[in-house]
Design a protein around this nucleic acid. Sequence first.
DNA 1: CGCCCCGTTGAAATGAGTCAAGCCTTGTGG
DNA 2: CCACAAGGCTTGACTCATTTCAACGGGGCG
Lengths: 248, 248
Amino acid sequence: MPLTGHPFVTKISRLMDMNAGNLDSLEAIMEREGTAAKRHDLIVHGAEHRDLCFVRSGYAIRYRLLRNGKRQILNVILPGDVIGFPVSFFDRATYAVVAVSNLSYSVCPLSSYVRLCYERPQFGLVLTWLAAREAAICAEHIVNLGRRTPIERLAHFLLEIHDRLLEVGCAEQTRFDLPFSQGILADVLGLSVPHLNRVMQELRAERLIVSTSRLMELPDIAGLRRLAQYQPVDLALIPAGPTAQRGL
Amino acid sequence: MPLTGHPFVTKISRLMDMNAGNLDSLEAIMEREGTAAKRHDLIVHGAEHRDLCFVRSGYAIRYRLLRNGKRQILNVILPGDVIGFPVSFFDRATYAVVAVSNLSYSVCPLSSYVRLCYERPQFGLVLTWLAAREAAICAEHIVNLGRRTPIERLAHFLLEIHDRLLEVGCAEQTRFDLPFSQGILADVLGLSVPHLNRVMQELRAERLIVSTSRLMELPDIAGLRRLAQYQPVDLALIPAGPTAQRGL
DNA sequence: CGCCCCGTTGAAATGAGTCAAGCCTTGTGG
DNA sequence: CCACAAGGCTTGACTCATTTCAACGGGGCG
């Protein structure tokens, strides 16, 4: 299956020249296409995992379960994200991943990707750049959980998802598909379900969000940003290397 | 100044063969050595930054200030860490970095490192691997802030620092230098200073830590791990590439 | 010598979690 | 096609962990 239009390609096209040669090399290492149904476990905590899964469509969550039964969601996985990062870089998975909607993805073994990096170092750099982006998102979550009030947290999270979906062409200007139950949102934001519910009502009352089952609408993005102290992240470009001159 | 014994080299030696050739190439791109006094700002929020600073010795913190005056510390920077990650990959710094002890480091421009990645792709892969490690640490912080109790948070954080220092040979088996004020610890863990103080007293009362000003001793690491549900992270090795065969 | 930072303690206020119940929707199997 | 089950959403009352505010003491540094 061709990678044209794959959200991962959309994403890295901002960072490197995805010409025919590069696209072909990437396509060549893909081992197979896969799908997973809602609620299907993609990675189980403690298992070995050595594949990179490039999500075509659908949503998933990375999470950790604690002894006392509490769950913390580390990150949500959107189209264009790589499920194996950073799990595949460890001996054993340090957390779990489960699909929250039906999901489709392309798979390649980590070792193949690494081989590709030796041949075309740009792919290694792109991965580093994506990792930097990931780190920035992660940092925002830390600020969220540590020092923002619940209502700011929720606002910030919605803006983040919206921006990430826009980046891969999976959202409209003021609305997007949000198939997360309140249980999931609560576990992302470190809140209890009842409290999250009340906080959502506050946002609705302030006319900052309009939500109907799976559809989330943001009629006042500027207001939300002010509330959440949200600042969009702008990845810098990868400095040009010899590859560019060699025309690879 | 030679890089021999540099904690960053110690760290990446687990991941790649730091033979004379690789060591020399790395040394060649270093632009200068630097030092910073305690309390010196290394990166200011919103400024441009395009350098990688490889910390030789000393401690620093990455943090974010909110409108209401609250501060969240995103991560602490220890010997062997790279100050420019991920800040240098963005147009403008999304957070600030300040030294909390006297600090010494080696500097190279990001563009030089990228050039090195084109010549020797292993350096790019190492950066990706380190980013994966960073992401895992970040994920733990999220679990900490979102779902662990204050005493578990503190225990987890101390174990993390201890392990990270051990990795670069900067800690003893059961003790290490911890030059963080309670104000800093509180802002790492998302707590208020008075509460952090009481939580520390709890840990002391349980005989899980012994601390005198800057020295932190962990007499019962197994107990601490049990309390914090701490699991050490094991980075997998980078799959071998053609470079190995070419003997670079 | 005095100042400032840091650690410590106490008391009061409050935000958020827990528990519990009811309702609505969705999906499923008879 | 209907009935039931299960999951998700919403609400209320209660509890308590944590923050806030305030004050004091010690110690290092200028």
